[in-house]
């Protein structure tokens, strides 16, 4: 298991596993509703031309999140 980083810091193309969602409410509930639970596998697919937002693939869905939200999700990079 590698060290933890925030989802927003995940390099393009890298896969990771969610460790925790550290967001205050209501953001925390919303991120969990979107499928970000501890143990969820996430892949960062690409970023927008201006750097933000980014597209993540999780639970069969391609989801676009801004850095301000993705920062609140702690993940560990998969090897």
């Amino acid at each position: 298991m590698s060290e933890s980083l925030s989802l927003s810091g995940l390099p393009i193309g890298a896969a990771a596993t969610v460790i925790a969602v550290d967001a205050a409410e209501p953001l925390g509930t919303r991120l969990r509703d979107l499928g970000l639970h501890p143990g969820t596998k996430v892949i960062c697919l690409r970023r927008a031309p201006l750097g933000d937002p980014r597209i993540y693939e999780l639970r069969g869905v391609q989801l676009c999140l801004r850095g301000s939200e993705a920062r609140k999700v702690r993940v560990s990079a998969d090897d």
Partner: peptide, 9 residues
């Protein structure tokens, strides 16, 4: 908007 920007592709 109190909710985050969410967009599914």
């Amino acid at each position: 908007a109190s909710l985050p920007f969410v967009l599914e592709l």
